[in-house]
């Protein structure tokens, strides 16, 4: 599937969905397309049709859910366990970098997500520092 056409299909999704999942969806689609291409032209054509139908149906369902107020993205997260102060500080820096990148590209839902990650990591850092011997 051509990038331009995928971008068009993705543009049919609500903005918050594009910000949080757009890059991932493009990545998954790229990997799946590579696999199907190796299975022959018939498999690839079927895959393309199947994906277009899936993306269109997904966009319509999500638009309907968003209009009905039934769908929202929450900053749900799980942060990998970092047992040391250094590791937590490194994760904080990474979250800040991701947040800055998201703001620079006007992806504000994503920026809020990383802001929440950073807040939780700072809480953890305080706890870790409190456990250190004085």
């Amino acid at each position: 599937m051509k990038h331009g056409f995928f971008d068009f299909l993705l543009s049919l999704y609500p903005k918050d969905h594009r910000e949080m999942f757009g890059a991932e969806m493009a990545n998954v689609l790229r990997q799946a397309a590579q696999d199907r291409r190796s299975e022959g032209i018939a498999a690839y054509l079927w895959f393309t049709f199947f994906e277009i139908a899936g993306l269109l149906a997904g966009a319509v369902a999500l638009r309907a859910a968003t209009l009905a107020g039934r769908s929202r993205i929450k900053p749900v997260l799980w942060i990998p366990a970092a047992s040391s102060v250094e590791e937590t500080e490194r994760l904080i820096q990474r979250s800040v970098d991701c947040m800055v990148r998201a703001i620079a590209t006007h992806q504000f839902v994503k920026a809020r997500f990383y802001s929440e990650v950073e807040r939780k990591l700072r809480q953890r850092l305080e706890g870790l520092k409190g456990e250190l011997p004085h």
């Binding site: 689609l29 997904g58 769908s71 993205i73 749900v76 997260l77 799980w78 994760l91």
Partner: peptide
């Protein structure tokens, strides 16, 4: 699952807090 179906379902599961994202 198509990409559209998968990410529609993942979003609902995140909303319901049945799954979590992690970095």
């Amino acid at each position: 699952l198509s990409t559209g179906t998968l990410y529609g379902a993942l979003r609902r599961l995140l909303d319901d807090e049945w799954i979590e994202r992690f970095e």
